[in-house]
Amino acid sequence: MTETAFFDTLLVVTMIGLAIWMIVVRDVFAAIIGFMAFGLLLSLVWLRIEAPDVGLTEIAVGGGATGVMLLRARGLASAGDAMNAVPSVPFRVLVGVLAGAVALFLGALVVFPPAVAPTLAPLAAEHLASTGVGNPITAVLMAYRAFDTFLETVVVLLALIGVWSLTPDGAWGARPRVASADVPAPLLLLAQWLVPLGIVIGIYITWVGADEPGGKFQGATILAAMWMLVMMAGLRSAPALSSRRLRIALVVGPAIFIAIGVSGFHFAGAFLAYPDGLAKPLILAIEAGLLISIAAMLGMLLAGPPLEGDRP
């Protein structure tokens, strides 16, 4: 504890400094860079509080993908330039006091915890063997609370449908424009070398998720990032929204999930119940399908909708 206290304190101070800087800095580009840096540091925090799975997700989704998406959006930075009305000082003070009160309340909850910390860990450990997976997080996501995970995938799909529904009329069905205007030679080289390695790493991270930190969400984000790199380097263009192959890729994971879930009624007596001894292979089948679908969803969320000028 003593020698890690330096690290912990410095990490917290840096993160709070970055957060304040993000709020006060004028330049939007700088604020987004700050957010990206913040996400990378936040992943170190998750490692320090014994949640490596969450840290991995934060690296992939929270820092990397969100930052890239914020920069990708054309016209986003200048949106609301007209809205320069600075709130009055009394209002700013009021908001400051209220936000401070919320922070103090949460802080008090942290400093004065209940006498017995609530935990479901013993219950999760008790049935871990019957799921056949060694990582308790994966067991929670794929066995104990599999229905949540299914709905989460559907939420991501709904978000994608929402994004696509914002396509301008003239551009519907077109390919989103992702490729950089002119591709520097080093990027081309990197895209050709890094992407195959990245795909291997993405599948590896999904595979080790059964027993070590990892899993399909993290692996799928890596795959989506690699896909994005290919599209940015102009090696392949983004698929058209109306592409049948794209749409099949998007639904194959949820479809396998539903199929195995419904067959649970017949073989194990409940929706999403796995028959004895088959839990691990069934979980692997669902994860493989979801890997493809989530990678496609996240990749298309990163690419955004086609805009004016991206005519089919």
Partner: peptide
Amino acid sequence: LLAAFAAIA
């Protein structure tokens, strides 16, 4: 891998 990707993007 992903920090490299972000820097490039």
